[in-house]
Amino acid sequence: MTKVVEITNMHFTRGERTIYENISLSVAKGGITAIMGPSGIGKTTLLKIIGGQLVPNSGDVIFQGENVHKVSRSRLYEMRRKMSMLFQSGALFTNMSVFDNVAFPLREHTKLDESIISTIVKLKLEAVGLRGALGLMPSELSGGMARRAALARAIALDPDLIMYDEPFAGQDPISMGVLVELIKTLNKALDLTSIVVTHDVSEVLEIADYAYIMANKTIIGAGTPEEIKNSDSPLVRQFLNGDADGPVPFHYNAESLQDDLLAVN
């Protein structure tokens, strides 16, 4: 199977802090790849590295056969037309209505008629259940609605690769079910490749073809959902069961609490 994204031996640091140490992963064409891991581990960072917004210290990130960080700026912009990202915060343009937000990439990158754009936008909004909200401004949306509007915008151009950053956060069970279905059908119908970053292990494992679990600056588990569920690695088990204690620390790196509190006196 061909790979849409291939990361090899990638190192990334933020200031003094190492976020990734020598990780390699690949995303198969036409599949849904899940990336899971504790909060603050660098999942959003990984998506930004793939999108070329952050540059790794070393290692290669290949998108459709080209190194994202070695091509020229204009080529990078061309490559980004083939990918799309749903930001964790939604990142809707606050000075435009929902309709204009979804129409934005179409107006920027295509010369389509306004009537065709209107049709496409309405179809995309229908898919996320927000066709009735097309006249609202982003400030009038709830967090979950904003995320879905942003999803409609992300799929407006029918890209080759979609990166979803926490698509399920802030969704009620019904919209969550709809979104899970939507990601799956989009993937099938449009022959897309999807990367889904999430904490919602059970939902995403239902639709994912392959999953990576990250912790401690590396990938601690990888495989098909079946393999992950049956994994006997203690790290993976802790993550799946949600145990506070275990090999994966819940705390951000710090000296021991005892030392810290005693040091005050």
Binding site: Q53, R80, S84, E108
Partner: peptide, 11 residues
């Protein structure tokens, strides 16, 4: 609010 980032990602 990541609007600039998302513009970049939209090429």
């Amino acid at each position: 609010t990541e609007q600039l980032s998302s513009l970049e990602m939209m090429a």
